[in-house]
């Protein structure tokens, strides 16, 4: 479903701080599978994830989504693909403070301009699925860490994306909550979604729900010659 051909990413090109974070990555991520990207800190996991998720562009190489080349699309189209195809779960859950959980969940759907009634209903339904319906009208800062993360997950689901991308989803969670997260990932898989997770938590990449583990090191797939 997602194909990468020799993807490279160089930061700060031409400056003394020039840094090559990805050095030629070719990879196939199949649909309806749970793939985990793992590797030491600084190995380029987040960078790769943001390229796959159409948040940034590779310096070289190509990315294909369902057979369609997306590397060279203008920003508007990328944004459009991003919000329809991908749902993001962030490491710091990146919720907007001062507004309610429900509003946070609905935010990604705002630019699409669908009718308010159905959207709200869908948001409430999804919150309910993750036992958050009682917290819908609470402000973000009142939520516990686990609740906040689940709100972040619900937000990722609001536009019914086919790919869920999660960057270090369990780094702020204890073991019990991490298991809870993996249970949720199971349900994603059941719903036919593709899941892409970065993690260096063995609990995650050794979990039974994971179909494939990709190891990165120094911006390369592990085992490939530099």
């Amino acid at each position: 479903m997602i194909e990468l051909f020799d993807v490279r990413k160089v930061f700060n090109t031409g400056k003394p701080s020039e840094y090559s974070a990805l050095n030629g990555i070719s990879l196939n991520i199949s649909s309806n599978k749970v793939t985990v990207l793992t590797g030491p800190s600084g190995s380029g996991k987040t960078t790769l994830l943001s390229i796959i998720g159409c948040m940034s562009r590779p310096t070289a190489g190509r990315v294909k989504l369902s057979g369609r080349e997306i590397t060279s699309l203008p920003e508007r189209f990328l944004t459009d693909i991003r919000r329809k195809t991908f749902g993001f779960i962030f490491q710091q859950h990146n919720l907007i403070k001062g507004i309610t959980a429900l509003e946070n969940v609905m935010l990604p759907a705002y630019p699409l301009g669908e009718r308010h009634g159905p959207l709200k209903e869908r948001a409430m339904h999804l919150l309910d699925r993750l036992d958050l319906s009682r917290k819908a009208h609470s402000r973000i800062e009142w939520l516990s860490g686990g609740e906040a993360q689940r709100v972040g997950i619900v937000r990722a689901l609001i536009n019914d994306p086919s790919v869920i991308i999660a960057d270090e989803p369990t780094s702020n969670l204890d073991t019990k909550l991490s298991y809870r997260f993996l249970e949720i990932v199971e349900t994603f898989k059941k719903d036919g979604k593709t899941v892409l997770i970065t993690s260096h938590d063995p609990l995650v990449y050794q979990a039974s729900v994971v179909d494939e583990v990709v190891r990165l090191r120094d911006g390369r797939l592990e085992g490939e010659a530099p």
Binding site: I96, G98, I99, E103, Y110, G113, H116
Partner: peptide, 22 residues
């Protein structure tokens, strides 16, 4: 057109929520 209006309304919703924070 309808979705354009709806979109503006959503953006106003968010703007107001965020203004009401202070």
């Amino acid at each position: 057109m309808k979705s354009w209006i709806e979109k503006q309304k959503y953006i106003i919703d968010f703007t107001l929520s965020s203004l009401l924070r202070r």
